[in-house]
Write a protein that binds this DNA or RNA. Structure first.
Length: 516
RNA sequence: UGGGGCGUAGCCAAGCGGUAAGGCAGCGGCCUUUGGAGCCGCCAUCGUUGGUUCGAAUCCAACCGCCCCAACCA
């Protein structure tokens, strides 16, 4: 059980624009915080009262040093800091000044409330950290009610305690702040803070990082602002909104998180593992369909001119309960352009002049001729024949006519297919570590120029004609695809490739084993 | 040069004194009407060095490497 809380202690920060989408995304991921949605700003009154108490007990003081002065008084990593000249200000004076800070009597930055801890501490966070600062900014929840705002380090432990939090989990960079977290709890006295579950404890873990992408808000913002992506929910973005738009199922993301574990060592998870989790999930339930992304026309010379057969094909071989669908077949088809090679290398099993392949769920066909564009020499069409004795009759071994073909390829009926736009996504960055490989230039130089390829002439089997936005399919032999929730609608189908299928042929080609 | 953290295979990660789980990636094979899925097999002496112990990835010491900290950010 957990609470969802926004630590909106800084009104200047633009958090506001993110609150709604964070709530939406976290809920989509499957998190359930019941009705326990909180904001640090919910506690501003109580935090103020606790601060008053710290001043009264001499544990905090109002300091008149400017930001620059505070910095120079703080010392360095190796040298201790010096006490502020206002450190020994009488509690009574601090109290009055603190009230006047709240009343808006001083300009922004003129004074702060500081904890009186130890200016010589080797932990810089303990060198009299600022607890409150003056900020004349409108807060998205409290409006203009306040002009003094608590710092995160002060507010966080108190909010945790007030909520009865037992484990306050955060990332490693806060480990140095833990002594301050504990100091605040140790020095504020209140019945409201003595929860039955005991006091909260901060526990740090490494943050999640993945290869071939960037995770920091600062860097993601640059991608958005420099137009390198189309927004925070661009399907290439590692944001929840991006993964969601791309089509990653929340279950797959959760499975990924469970499997990589949580530890304290800095780590970078290979993006391939996330993809594995996505495939693993989708393979189980995503309905199969045939989609030709780069069409190559095929005519079957011996197929009755006006005949149409409706082939019954399983919706998901992984799940017989998913049933079957009926797909129209006729003498004019489209197949994938990549599934034909005029001069195939040794390990190419697909169609080639004089060769046979099986059309998934239909017949074995043989390539008898190639029609080329007279001017460009480009292949325009394939002339094939089909063998009527090889019709797939719902099942393995059926219609084989005693033959074995090396490949089965997907197809669509040219007379029945529906057009679609398909967006092929690839890693946003070419390098596993975008930052490091950038060399002289910054990480943006590593953006993969091929991270998005839009195919506008795709043909889908007609069962996909009314695919609803947000639905996911496996396009046979190609990958998993998501009907884009924003751009896809009836009459204008748009699919995002979530992840490709494992492609051993592509791997063979890459390693050069294909020749010979 | 101060403080905090971390170092187990290319990448994650178990292990907590009794002789290195699991996953991803990779490689080899089987199977297959998705070159998908599935199945089988291969793939580490635990940063280094020394010590304690019958026995150490696990305990101790020193060293090496990497990450974080000097916002009135979170």
């Amino acid at each position: 059980m957990f609470n969802l809380r926004f630590d909106d202690t800084n009104p200047a920060a633009e958090e506001e624009e993110f609150v709604e989408s964070i709530i939406d995304d976290v809920r989509w991921l499957g998190a359930d915080w019941g009705d326990r949605l909180f904001f640090a700003s919910d506690y501003f009154d109580r935090l103020w009262a606790f601060a008053l108490q710290l001043v009264e007990t001499g544990k905090a003081y109002v300091c008149d040093l400017s930001p620059d002065e505070i910095r120079s008084y703080r010392g360095t990593l190796t040298q201790p800091g010096r006490d502020s000249p206002y450190r020994e200000r009488p509690a009574k004076d601090s109290l009055e000044l603190f009230q006047r800070m709240k009343a808006g009597e001083f300009p922004e930055g003129a004074r702060t409330l500081r904890a009186k801890i130890d200016m010589a501490s080797p932990n810089l966070n303990l060198r009299d950290p600022v607890l409150y600062r003056i900020l004349y900014a409108r807060h998205h929840r409290t409006g203009d009610r306040w002009c003094v705002y608590p710092m995160y380090d002060y507010a966080h432990p108190l909010c945790d305690a007030l909520e009865g939090i037992t484990h306050s989990l955060c990332t490693l960079e806060y480990a140095d702040h833990r002594p301050l977290y504990d100091w605040v709890l140790d020095n504020v006295e209140s019945p409201a803070l003595s929860g039955v579950r005991g006091r909260p404890r901060q526990i740090e873990f490494a943050r999640l990082r993945a290869s071939h992408t960037v995770m920091s808000k600062r860097k993601l913002r640059r991608l958005v602002e420099e137009g390198l992506v189309d927004g925070w929910d661009d399907p290439r973005m590692p944001t929840i909104a991006g993964l969601r738009r791309r089509g990653y199922p929340p279950e797959a993301i959760r499975s990924f998180c469970e499997q990589i574990g949580v530890a304290r060592s800095d780590s970078v998870v290979d993006l391939a593992f996330l993809e594995h989790c996505v495939r693993q999930d989708l393979n189980r339930w995503a309905p199969r369909a045939m989609a030709v992304l780069r069409p190559l026309k095929v005519t079957l010379a011996n197929y009755p001119r006006d005949q149409v057969e409706w082939m019954e094909i399983e919706s998901n071989p992984e799940d017989p309960a998913a049933g079957t669908r009926r797909v129209p077949f006729c003498g004019e088809l489209y197949i994938e352009h990549d599934d034909f090679l005029e001069d195939p290398p040794g390990k190419f099993f697909r169609l080639a002049p004089g060769r046979e392949v099986r059309l998934k769920g239909a017949y074995i066909v043989k390539c008898e001729g190639v029609v080329k564009d007279e001017l460009t020499g480009r292949i325009r069409e394939l002339r094939c024949t089909f063998d009527p004795a090889t019709r797939s009759e719902g099942g393995e071994g059926a219609g084989s006519a005693g033959r074995k073909v090396k490949a089965t390829i997907h197809w669509v009926s040219a007379r029945h297919c529906v057009p679609a736009v398909v967006r092929l996504y690839d890693n946003l960055f070419l390098a596993a570590d975008p930052e490091q490989a950038a060399g002289e230039r910054d990480f943006t130089a590593n953006v993969n120029p091929g991270s998005l390829e839009v195919l506008t002439d795709c043909r889908l089997e007609p069962t996909l004609a009314n695919a609803s936005p947000g639905s996911r399919y496996q396009f046979l032999r190609q990958g998993y695809f998501h009907a884009d929730p924003v751009d896809c609608r009836e009459g204008r189908l748009v699919f995002n490739r979530i992840v490709s299928l494992r492609d051993t042929w592509a791997r063979v080609q890459k390693t050069g084993n294909a020749i010979g």
